[in-house]
Design a protein around this nucleic acid. Sequence first.
DNA 1: TTGAAAGCGCTAACAA
DNA 2: TTGTTAGCGCTTTCAA
Lengths: 351, 351
Amino acid sequence: MGVTLKDVARRAGVSIKTVSNVVHGYEHVTVEMRQRVNKALEELNYQPNLPARYLRQGHVSIVALAIPFLTNPYFSDIGKAVVSAANARAYTVLIDSTDGERAKEMMVINGMYPHLIDGVILSPLALEAEDLLSRRVDVPIVLLGERLFNVPYDHVVIDNVAAARLATSHLISLGRTRIAAIGAQEISAGDTARLRLQGYREALTEAGLAYNPDLVTRSLSYDRIDGIQSMHQLLASGTPPDAVFCFNDLLALGALRALYEAGYRVPEDVAVVGIDDIKESAFSMPSLTTIAPNKQEIGDLAVAFLLDRIAKTYTGQPRQTQASFELIVRESTAGRAASPQQTSPIVPRPE
Amino acid sequence: MGVTLKDVARRAGVSIKTVSNVVHGYEHVTVEMRQRVNKALEELNYQPNLPARYLRQGHVSIVALAIPFLTNPYFSDIGKAVVSAANARAYTVLIDSTDGERAKEMMVINGMYPHLIDGVILSPLALEAEDLLSRRVDVPIVLLGERLFNVPYDHVVIDNVAAARLATSHLISLGRTRIAAIGAQEISAGDTARLRLQGYREALTEAGLAYNPDLVTRSLSYDRIDGIQSMHQLLASGTPPDAVFCFNDLLALGALRALYEAGYRVPEDVAVVGIDDIKESAFSMPSLTTIAPNKQEIGDLAVAFLLDRIAKTYTGQPRQTQASFELIVRESTAGRAASPQQTSPIVPRPE
DNA sequence: TTGAAAGCGCTAACAA
DNA sequence: TTGTTAGCGCTTTCAA
């Protein structure tokens, strides 16, 4: 196997403990000892055996991040944010994708890597509240996203109602009146859709516009293809909308694609807004106006909550925090006047 | 801490070994014993302590995958492929991003997670051959991509020269003669650019077209923004190209964006081809013709090579394999006649 | 300031 | 078929 403390100790002619002390930067070691040990360490290229250390210490300084899809740019952005937040606190992140399957999410919450991680940050898609309530392992969990609020775990979200209201209001401010919504879902599927639909309706009401169910399409998943289908459906209906609020960027990019296929001009004929601010949205044709959640803030908050729980620095009631977001106006609503990749953030008005 | 084998043994009134036998599905255990143990296992919700097992066994059934950028869709696709290949062989994957920084790549090859992983699949960007040659740890490594061929490690690639030749030939077959190339690099930066440029030139020569350096642009990185800049540069030059071969999809998507900004029609005025087949390319406007490397095959091969090395099933000379690839023709070269996404049923468009 | 020894939870060799 | 025990490499008392 590898080089052990024992090997180093023998080489340096000292005890194991002394080597361990040097490795850990323990203060009270004579300079001469320290030099001798460091020399042996270097010569033998000692690498600590982490499993052994973990076995002894009982914790591992690793957290898992479980997201539905690694290849969804929103989630890979979140992944990046979590990794950087965790690294800043000397934690390693093990990234896992659940494919939105309940079975995999169950494995995540019920100790997929027993004793190999100190905690989990989970963005659930299929899990039900009872799954979380009946779990038998006690590894700390922090939840991300708009599902499972009635469950005793720390949770990081954005204010979806406010975000949707801001997006819709922006379309209204352009003078649009037939504003469609893409991405509604049956109640059972989750809360994201419900909250965003609520924000959409609130903005309409506030502006004195009637809510028209014919302008709202449903889709099970939130991928580009769903946006394409929904948009085609809206265009095929009697009177096409003059604006669309899509419940995420991938849907919006699909909608742009469908409008392109059908020969509509964006934003002249139809203005489009999304939510997520994935990188691609700054480069689509036209570039996409969107709500940008502060992803780094989401990562920072989630890691902070989780490490609190792990260290038992905080043992109180479950906390729920909302990360900030902003509207980024691009060509899909402002036309070519908007500089494509530049951001012109509009901060939501305080509640 | 958690529930241990000892706890279970006490509960079931048997020895630790018997419990261990049951946990591992050892054959020679009486039914009655097995039942008693399973009951205790269930009641106590036993979770094996992996670090302890690893310490004992000396290996961990985990491999690391180190890619430059998690948020680059090509690499997240590769990540997905590697994870599925590894899972199929009962291995867990720890995904890491190096940001293309030499320091981080050095950490990866020099035992970032000592004893916590059995091997590494690395897609190097900044590392030099000597870095790999002088490393002192002996964790198996498999290399991905077009760098560092003169180094004694297993390596999975695609035939870049052939791929570039195919892409360029496709443009030639459309009758284009002023074919530009976006993504060339100084020699030092790596081999991808050199090989793809070589394939481009071979295709030109084969067709009796002259190589024109003015039609070749350089870019340090391969992001959308680089494609935008290069394309603008080409358009600003005296006579604009009638086709462009971009050295990856992100460059090509940037080029599409620049053509859109400048008011050119694709493919009528300028045809565009990329390499990578990231998901977004099927949905861009127009959708992007591209070379699709078989990413699952890349993942399968890399994992197979690595597990061979870990198990010492293979200890011979370093192996180098080329994964297959294919040309996917979409709108950016075939026009609206091409079906935009191979997979999707598109609702017919009015006019 | 340094050393000796116990023990983390597990598996494997050996005994019964 | 089941039990006992040693030891993986480390950290942590406790002594010296």
